[in-house]
Design a protein around this nucleic acid. Structure first.
Lengths: 203, 203
DNA sequence: TTGAAATATGAACAAATGTTCACTACCATT
DNA sequence: AATGGTAGTGAACATTTGTTCATATTTCAA
């Protein structure tokens, strides 16, 4: 079976600390975060997590308790986005990439799994991970992850074009017709974020 | 102006340690690596590197001296490869990507800056970073970084095809003619490594 | 209720480690 | 030779921090 509530909390805290600060927390910093008085309790839990294979340390060395699979900052990859920008949504999380979000210019960047060939003209392929930098507005011609209420069930990559009277969403593939939203219709278009990059892994 | 020899050595060591171990070295570990007796000298240099913006630390906290731009493991990106696999070649190093090499399956992966449109059919664009996993042999049809003595001045991405009597190197672009090497000629083809992935950053 | 497992507390020890200071050595330039 | 920047040595101090032990408290299922 899985982990205890406390064990999970502590594991999450370590991961989050390493992800954001790039430095492992000390045992006492973990204590302080949970309002505990002494390091003993946390230390025992660390031992448990180590035995389960979740974390590692170099015995005796300071600040070496860190996630096992690989230390360092990371970036979440989402399978799809159903509503709004997922802040801490665990549901659609496909994996954590061992990549510093700084690589793509912003701390809140995240990956979005690309499905289908709709962006093939931009050399983005099925299975690629599109890196999205969250924002609410884009310029004419930018590629962005967008959602359209009632039309696109999940966030999709489109080239966004603005006209006097509306918004046009283009797939980068001649096989797909552009979507046009005129007047009030345009309000249904929700910008998730701008395309900041691509990561592809060959099988 | 740049850094002193010692300063550069220490900076490189810190980067390498963080890259491979995921944990910052302690001041004394740095001393030991260079055969120094006391931590004082190194500490002074660390201060210099900090002031220059290369590294950061949380004053007083243990093991918090780490590369400034982003902690965690990283992967070197090379502009071009003139001869053999560059183990520690600093010359052609374009930058360090804050990406764990584990993402692409092997510790010795490195990035190679893609120039030109010769791989456009594989959806690899000018400016992309091709991730190369070093190896000496590839299978028929694999995409690899190759060099050809006297023909290709630097490592280039090609689709490698084997025939009864030789090797054919194809660019993934109809505008480029494939290169054919028959018989003994084939020995001039040197495989640098296999294409493991792509990282693209949009401007 | 009862008992085992998980947690928390308090105290204390030993190491690891950052940091500082004074002094010496080397090296290139003036 | 004098000077100034960079480096190395030795010693010492103060914290941070991992680790352990014994004991109390909570939780939760049998």
């Amino acid at each position: 079976m899985g982990l205890t509530k406390r064990q999970q909390e502590i594991l999450d805290f370590i991961r989050k600390q390493v992800r954001t600060h790039g430095v492992s927390p000390s045992v006492r910093e973990i204590c302080h975060h949970f309002g505990l008085k002494g390091p003993a309790g946390v230390h025992r839990i660390l031992k448990v997590l180590e035995q389960q294979g979740y974390i590692t340390s170099i015995p005796g060395k300071k600040r070496t308790w860190r996630p096992a699979g690989g230390a360092g900052r990371s970036m979440p990859v989402l399978g799809n986005i159903a509503a709004g920008i997922p802040i801490d949504a665990q549901e659609d999380l496909v994996e954590e990439l061992p990549v510093d979000t700084a690589l793509f210019g912003s701390d809140d960047c995240f990956g979005l799994l690309v499905k289908g060939d709709s962006m093939v003209d931009l050399h983005i392929m099925d299975g690629d991970i599109a890196i999205i930098r969250p924002c609410h507005q884009v310029e004419h011609g930018n590629v962005a992850a967008v959602m359209v209420q009632g039309v696109l069930p999940e966030a999709t990559l489109k080239t966004v074009k603005f006209h006097e009277d509306g918004i046009e969403l283009h797939a980068a593939n001649p096989l797909y017709e552009p979507l046009t939203f005129l007047g009030d219709e345009a309000r249904r278009v929700q910008i998730i974020g701008k395309l900041a990059g691509i990561i592809r892994r060959n099988r």
